[in-house]
Amino acid sequence: MIGLFLVAPEDADQGVIQRIFYFHVPIALVSLVAFGVACVAGILYLRGGREHWDEVGVVSVGLGMLFSVLTVITGSIWAKASWGTWWVWDDPRLVTYLVVILLYAAYFVLRSSAEDNRRARYSAVYGIFAFAGVPLSFYSVRVAQSFVHPVVFTRGGADMPGSMLIWFVISLVAMFGVFATLLQLELLQRRADRAMRDLKTRLEALMAGA
């Protein structure tokens, strides 16, 4: 973390604001991976019907949402620093993340209004459905942009000098670690909750019997 701020090289043009890149891009990638995990969990739930996969799905979508919102916020800060405004509709990345956030926000609305016996099934279906929508949203915004902005942004990937790339990879791995840890923690908590509920009902039944 300290390395990101002190050691990692700065971009010659953009100065200190470029450091947000080490957060912004890994967060964005992790949010997509989280939605992917939710999609896979949805498929596994529909196949096997195990409650575990439903929990993995809902926690992944939640974390994916958190990371996408952070992506939009860090992206917006970057936009302010490098283009002078908080929001640019011309920038395909910011706009697609907004669309993706709207797409997945509906997941929670669906989940809260679905009837109990259908909730997990519908969540799984919507998790798969929305993940199919992600690349389409990305592409649709880019088709629309390509006529306005002939220049394709190519920063990132192999365009970085080696010293930047190392720090980028470190931060990417760290973000994946954060995601995996949060996922585990949340699942653990849900399992504990469930165990507690079971215990309570059993205890109540016992008390009623006695």
Binding site: L102, L103, A105, A114
Partner: peptide, 21 residues
């Protein structure tokens, strides 16, 4: 949405984001 509560509220929220593309 037809099997859910508040379906007339749920449907636009579900449908419109997917229709943006």
């Amino acid at each position: 949405s037809v099997f859910s509560r508040a379906r007339e509220l749920l449907l636009p929220v579900l449908l419109l984001p997917s229709l943006i593309p």
